[in-house]
Amino acid sequence: MEEIVSSVKRDYIIDLVKQGKRIDGRALDQLREVVVEKGVIKTANGSAKVKLGKTQVLVGVKLMHAEPFPDTPESGVLIVNAELLPLASPTFEPGPPRVEAIELARVVDRGIRESEAIDLDKLGIKPGEDVWSVFIDIDVLDHDGGLIDASALASIAALTDVKPPQDEDWKLPGFPLNRLPVAVTVAKIDGKLVVDPCLDEERVMDARLTITTIEDGSICSMQKGGRGYFTREELEQAYDLASAKAVELREKLR
């Protein structure tokens, strides 16, 4: 069940954006307040809670023994799963994952996988039989928009928090994390681009574009969402915004 946006609210948000303003008082290129808290869950190998404005996401990373994929018998496995808990929003219902949860997990997965943030080749144990599986589980606790950015940041923060498991098969000195991919979503509202849309803005936006970049500013994954479109100029502008804001978010990982 989706919430219906009242016409008054829609008009108000669009009116504001026209004047270069936003419903929560931010500038168009301003992120919400970000708080990253690491090491919050003892039962996980690594964990982090991210607050992005009023949105709250908790990520736990677990390292488990698993069978490798046949085509990569010596490499570890990465599995990203997201739960849109009914706790987090009146529109989330219990039951099998909705397409939004699947998209969320897959976008976060691609950012980490394609940037080769984790050196999976180092996570083999016994070729063809036993490897380390990195489970990244995303629990969305409070949904006020920006779930992809918050989840991606919490995931990479949780990976920086991973402590090696107490297991004789673990031979590495630390967790092989090479890069810090950061996702930033840019929304298009009435022809203007705004960074890190809150839920009210997501409900009225024409389209969104999530760009995941690594430290050198290069792109490792993108995802467009929503019914609207972006022009070529808008794409370039969106990249400039996303790569600049990624630097700010990466600072929060320290």
């Binding site: 219906i4 946006v5 009242s6 016409s7 008054v8 829609r10």
Partner: peptide, 8 residues
């Protein structure tokens, strides 16, 4: 013509 979805 009087009211649409989303009207307040």
């Amino acid at each position: 013509k009087f009211l649409k979805i989303g009207d307040v």
